[in-house]
Simulated assay, not measured.
Amino acid sequence: GGLLDVVLAPDFAQSRRVWLSYTEAGTNGAAGAVVGYGRLSDDARQLADFKVVIRQEPKLSSGANIGTRLAFDRDGFLWIGFGDSFRSSTAQDLDQLQGKLLRLNADGSVPQDNPFVGHKNARPEIWTLGMRNPQGLALNPWTHQMWESEHGPRGGDEVNIPQKGKNYGWPLATWGIDYSGEKVPESKGGQVEGTEQPVFYWKNSPAVSGMAFYNSARFPQWKNSLFIGALKEKNLIRLSINGEKVVEEQRLLTDRGERIRDVRQGPDGYLYVLTDESNGKLLKVGLNEGADAPRG
């Protein structure tokens, strides 16, 4: 739990609005995600007038699978990826926010063209369902599509391009197995009619975390790349992208032995990588000139 994501509003230069997602305890001993925004003070020391926009209710999580990544698209819509709170069936329930990708207006209201607006017993904020535990959310700078990455159970980590109103399967369809080593109880296999296939998946989970597209001329060797952190594997994954397909996979920072929680491209064309350790670090990562090996 704790603080889950931080993003700036697209009009931050004027509004100074900062969006946060974080975990909030409930009266029943369980927790849920909260998303809201405040205004960064002129001295950049505090957020003022913080407003909560949406809460996961009912609160169901004991601390696992909260997910909750935030991203804005080029039209100014806010996308929110909520985990299933380790209650897998909720991902298929349209009256609950767990296991869903949401889409909101920049002020937190519901866009009227969301797929479940006006549907009885469905939350209008929902864009897609059947997500397990979103850990990455990033806008593809070339196609302007939102991409999402998520933890599978034991195996079956995924990368998806979430399409309006579609069902991404969890827990009915998964390429992973249960933590017990047995089949996920609700699973009907990797491919299930009425559900969408991931763009890419790992049979053995690297435990994916935050992700970012690379769209800078500084390191042309990284052109058309998607970078994803790995917690279990303790490395940085580079996926080469061609349209909507992953055509190559590479592992970077393999010698550090540190869990990687998030990755972003900086305005200088370098990658900025957060490690998830008791002595966590912010790493600045680039390439040696004429080489494919990263340097920090």
Rank of each mutant, 00 (worst) to 15 (best):
K203D: 10
N279D: 15
S225K: 09
A48M: 11
G290I: 03
D276F: 06
D178S: 15
K100H: 09
E233W: 15
P162I: 01
P198G: 03
P294A: 02
V7F: 07
S216M: 01
V6I: 15
A230Y: 12
E57D: 13
N65L: 11
G81K: 10
W222N: 06
P115T: 00
D292C: 00
I237W: 14
R74Y: 11
V263C: 07
L282F: 09
S85L: 03
R218E: 12
A71E: 13
G29L: 09
Q265L: 12
K51I: 14
Y179F: 15
K245E: 13
D268C: 10
Y214H: 05
R74N: 15
R218Q: 14
E196T: 14
G1E: 11
N160A: 08
D43Y: 14
G118E: 04
P111N: 04
N167W: 02
G243D: 06
K59T: 04
G152V: 04
F82A: 08
G130D: 04
K203L: 11
V273Q: 06
R264K: 15
S240W: 07
G2K: 05
P294V: 11
D268H: 10
R39F: 09
S205R: 10
W175K: 07
H151W: 06
L3H: 02
Q98K: 03
Q96L: 11
V199D: 08
K245C: 02
S278W: 06
I237A: 10
N140W: 04
R87P: 00
A230F: 12
G81Y: 12
G169E: 05
D292K: 00
G1V: 12
D157L: 12
L8S: 14
R17F: 00
S205T: 11
D42Q: 15
I126E: 06
L8K: 14
Q56W: 02
V117C: 01
E125Q: 15
E244N: 15
P162A: 01
Q265P: 03
G181W: 14
K120W: 08
W147T: 05
D5M: 02
S180I: 09
Y37I: 00
L274S: 12
M211H: 11
D276L: 06
Q46S: 14
L129P: 00
S149W: 00
H151V: 03
Q191T: 12
I126T: 01
Y214E: 03
A13E: 14
P153R: 13
L226P: 03
L239W: 13
L139W: 10
R16K: 15
I126A: 07
E186R: 13
Q92N: 08
W175V: 04
S85W: 07
N140L: 03
L78V: 09
A64I: 08
D276S: 01
K51L: 11
D268L: 10
G155F: 10
A212I: 02
D107Q: 05
G2T: 04
L78G: 07
G63C: 09
G190W: 05
V208G: 13
P220E: 01
S88K: 11
V18C: 03
Y179V: 00
E193V: 12
P206Y: 05
G156C: 06
T195F: 09
T143L: 05
W175Y: 15
R17M: 01
Q98G: 12
E193H: 07
P220G: 07
S61Y: 10
D43I: 10
L4A: 06
A173Q: 02
I260P: 10
E249I: 07
V246N: 09
K188F: 08
V53S: 13
N167C: 04
L102Y: 08
F50S: 01
G36H: 04
E158L: 08
R17G: 00
